[in-house]
Design a protein around this nucleic acid. Structure first.
Lengths: 212, 212, 212, 212
DNA sequence: TACTAAGCGAGACGGTACGTCTCGTCTTCTC
DNA sequence: GAGAAGACGAGACGTACCGTCTCGCTTAGTA
């Protein structure tokens, strides 16, 4: 999401602590971390109150006490603000540990994933971001890179380990297995609204595991 | 989509051909089929030129030569116009025939589905409609009823037949099997942009069929 | 000021009551005279409260209950609204009657002119409009045509009559005489703020009249 | 214009060239004459390119290479910068010499005045400054003191000499005579755009001189 | 043959948010 | 401490659409 190199929290700025050495002198006032936090907090609060469709840059500016220009300076639009705000707030990281078997690994991964997927505050935002990604090509790439593919990479670790162990059905590539996992999750969130519950975990494990 | 009872083509209006008998006198000018066609055609043309995000009711009215009121009289918003236009133009029907085995039935179903899913003009519209369904609760219900569940019902026929024959893995319910099929399709369309190709068909058949 | 042909009050619309005969069909909702009046009234009220510099289209819209678009549809900017509002409110017409002698005619004309020029609500607006005319070439032409030259034409009647009677100094052309009259008036309004009082009238008459 | 005591060129700063001696310690970097010149030059250049309405402090800062703060530190607004820039560039001084008769004095004064008034680069700026003086009370006073009344004082010298010689019509006070002269000049510049030519000089002399 | 009730193209209306612009202030770092 | 750089809160700009509301007309029944 960090469209601008200085979008992240302090300490992540490029160039390192070596100072303003080099041709690109760094003059002028620094970005206000206080404003950034206020904007992200206001965004989370507002999206919970009025929903994504009712979320506006003007509203975020008013609520956060920031000027509109400050928002436009650092984010291209409300979807990017929301993506940053979501990353700031919810810990979207799902740790991948080696539990000894593919079934166990997958159960752990899906458990963590479903837990997030059951929180309406999270899924409401994710549905809105996925929707916006369909309407805005540029955002689509940012959303993929900063969220979709990050989750997919986590699962890929598990799947490749399973493949190495021979626990994946021979006819099933890791890529397609990932498509099935995320496909079902997103399809339930976006299309049917069916819950992400325990039985589904076992059904997915059954479908993706090589029969003994 | 036909929110308004008179939304369909002539001949589908309620009351039947028996005439205006009864208490509800039907006077006044009839709906212009010509306008309806012009609006749907303009919508298809415009969405191809400017995309869904750039599609506006004002633009449709201007292009079609209709008044804005005429559009608002028969559709709640641009998504519904587009849904009607898509149904009018593309034949979204995927026939379900009994090919003798689940694998063959599924292969046929997926073949028809993927064929549509490879047409960018169709998928662009579907992505937009799915996106809009995330932002508009009322439209979500209409989209489900008139498109999503209709396709799902078709697959359900195949799946229940497979279950009756014992061709579905014991641990896999027909509902979840449908989630996997549509999940993968929509996930590739919405999230990764990966193509819906022949290998995927075989992988899905492999994952959903009881091992011999 | 009436940039748009339909800008004036009802009854002045072109084409006459003969109906929509001819190529230029007049379809659509008619301009709301009520909105027009509300906008002009709000403009007068606001300019009295916050001054011309503080006058904004947004403020006029908010005060009048009109949409901004409605204002922009009929006027190019706040100066034109104000010019219309001034014409609507203050009777800027100075009648020119034949009093028998140039001195008497001029005394009457200046009496009427000075009376308006002593009203701060009028001069404040005129100063602002003259100022805006210096910054906006298009407005300058409209201001000249709808105000400056209209007043000048009135005085020209008096001056030409005087010239015909031989009451104007031989070396003084009517045009320059008008420049002197309006020049002094505007100079006092714009530059020095000196009052437009009775002694000035007599001094001007003395300077513009052929000595006996 | 020199609102700030240090606004003038070097050497005019208070405290004198004696240095920072005395109780009021004057520490720190001195004002950069280079910046001042760059700002005034950029202002003249910009106003010629984009006009006064398009002139902005930001634009001046960008063009001159100065920071915005530096401009705001020394001038209250763009009008004051422009007033300084005009004084720096154009020699606005009209010398007043005793030619022996009021007619000759006036002819000399008007000749010099009209010469400046025929230069569009000068009149464009003067029109803008006069316009701004109508919108900004504080600037109005500065404009009067540093330009309008300075020119008026010069003419007053001529007029009082004429009055002492008895060359002014008895009914005409020197003040009103000045109003007529400057009124016509400004009126032509601001309102009609008519040129300031030789015939006008003679007409004014005729109107302001006591008939023989 | 009227009368009456929609539907129609046109377009003005009150709203609202957009993204941009400039203001005048403030912080940061360099000279 | 002046100066260049540039982020900041503020708020108006003019535009784009929204969905609603007249308008004057056409088009069908109903009488």
């Amino acid at each position: 999401v960090n469209v601008n190199p200085a979008s992240g929290p302090p300490g992540t700025s490029p160039g390192g602590p070596g100072g303003p050495a080099g041709g690109s002198a760094r003059a002028g006032r620094k970005r206000s971390e206080q404003s950034r936090q206020a904007i992200l907090a206001a965004t989370i609060a507002l999206v919970g109150e009025v929903g994504y469709a009712g979320l506006t840059i003007e509203g975020i500016a008013a609520r956060s006490g920031a000027g509109k220009q400050t928002i436009y300076r650092w984010w291209p639009g409300k979807a990017d603000v929301l993506l940053d705000a979501l990353a700031e707030k919810a810990d979207l990281h799902v740790p991948v540990s080696d539990e000894g078997s593919f079934a166990a690994d997958l159960r752990t991964f899906l458990g963590g994933t479903f837990r997030l997927g059951r929180d309406p505050r999270v899924t409401d935002v994710l549905r809105a971001l996925m929707a916006h990604a369909q309407l805005d090509t540029d955002f689509r790439d940012r959303f993929r890179a900063s969220f979709l593919y990050r989750r997919r990479d986590a699962l890929a670790t598990v799947l490749h380990r399973a493949q190495a162990r021979g626990e994946l059905p021979a006819s099933l590539s890791p890529g397609t297995a990932a498509d099935i996992v995320f496909g079902v999750v997103w399809y339930r969130i976006l299309a049917t609204g069916e819950p992400l519950d325990e039985p589904l975990i076992e059904e997915l494990i059954g479908a993706l595991t090589r029969p003994a």
